Amino acid sequence: MRKIRVGVNGYGVIGKRVADAVFLQPDMELVGVADIATDWRIQSAANRLPLFASTPDAQAAMAAAGLRPLGTLDELLERSDIIIDTTPKHVAAGNLERYRTAGVKAVFQGGESHATTGHSFVAQANYESALGRDTTRVVSCNTTSIVRVLGALDGAGLLRRARGVLIRRATDPWESHLGGIMNTMVPEPTIPSHQGPDAQTVLPGLDLVTIAAKGAHTQTHNHYWTLQLTREASRDEVLDALRAAPRIAFIRMSDGLVALNSTIELMRDLGRPRGDMWEVAVWEDLVTVQGDEAFLTYQVYNEAIVVPETIDAIRALTGTAPDAATSMKITDDTLGMRSDFLRPAESPR
């Protein structure tokens, strides 16, 4: 069977991770990455990836910088079955008609609105509704985590409503020198914050409200949830629902993983590429249940969590995997996803 020919437009924080993930998939071929930059980010990719220029001006600039682009974005589209647009927020929406004209399917990221594609995607929640579509939008890092965790409890029949507080990182680590937040915290100016309504584009039945603020750090987000359950439940029931869900992994303060930075260091010690964490890291020993209320906190690695969802979206749009379970198994096996970062899967937790 011919491999899916995948192009990536935008070689930034998400784009470079998606490109590397495509390389690992047995049913996909990376035909090229496109960008407008000529600095170290593109230079580091030029000798190992097929490089294209997103615009004619960028093609000239790349050539002047000693790079050798194989062509422009139009030529990348000619070689691709599907394009993954990881260009900056709001830029991608302007590319939609270009992709349609080229007859290429397209996956967008959470920086664009739901209205851009009319479909928002998290693999475990609504893979089947994306089958055969021309476009979809993988929701943002925070929204992905909400759908995974709250969707697991909702699917187990345990969740009535959810109220959450999100402490967001201020900026991506590589550009922290450009500004950001120091010695303060900045509340998002509306309640609910945008992540709650965004999650409802994937799981419309969720009753949730989110409140968010940006903190003075650059690595990962941190969520705190107060959950009204459908009935009185035990802590083990809540934990079992989370254990049964894909792409959730437990961490524990009792193991010394007491803060966001400790989990980041663990990812490096586990040999994860770029220290990435594709899973939602739930603090197992902080999950608390009191009657029909549950309380939990977890960590979201904003640079990596949407990568497996993007890979699954490729299979959904091209129809090469019939259901979520089939696609997610391939993706999770190739990436080395885990349900617990320190204990073997066969050991009792």
Rank of each mutant, 00 (worst) to 15 (best):
42 I>M: 10
43 Q>D: 11
43 Q>E: 13
44 S>W: 04
44 S>Y: 05
45 A>G: 02
46 A>S: 13
47 N>R: 13
48 R>A: 10
50 P>N: 04
50 P>Y: 01
53 A>R: 00
54 S>K: 13
54 S>R: 15
55 T>D: 02
55 T>I: 04
56 P>C: 08
59 Q>N: 12
59 Q>E: 15
60 A>L: 12
61 A>G: 00
63 A>V: 12
63 A>R: 13
64 A>S: 11
64 A>R: 15
65 A>P: 05
67 L>D: 04
67 L>N: 00
68 R>V: 10
68 R>C: 07
70 L>F: 01
73 L>R: 04
74 D>S: 10
74 D>G: 10
75 E>H: 11
76 L>T: 03
77 L>T: 02
79 R>M: 13
80 S>V: 10
80 S>H: 07
82 I>C: 06
83 I>K: 00
84 I>N: 03
85 D>W: 00
86 T>W: 00
87 T>D: 06
87 T>A: 12
88 P>V: 05
88 P>T: 03
89 K>E: 14
94 G>I: 07
95 N>E: 11
97 E>P: 00
99 Y>S: 07
99 Y>K: 07
100 R>Q: 13
100 R>E: 14
101 T>Q: 15
101 T>H: 13
102 A>V: 08
104 V>Y: 07
104 V>I: 15
106 A>W: 05
106 A>V: 15
108 F>E: 03
108 F>I: 06
109 Q>R: 06
110 G>L: 09
111 G>R: 01
114 H>C: 02
114 H>D: 09
116 T>K: 05
116 T>G: 01
117 T>M: 00
117 T>E: 01
120 S>H: 03
120 S>I: 09
123 A>G: 12
124 Q>I: 11
126 N>D: 14
128 E>T: 10
130 A>S: 14
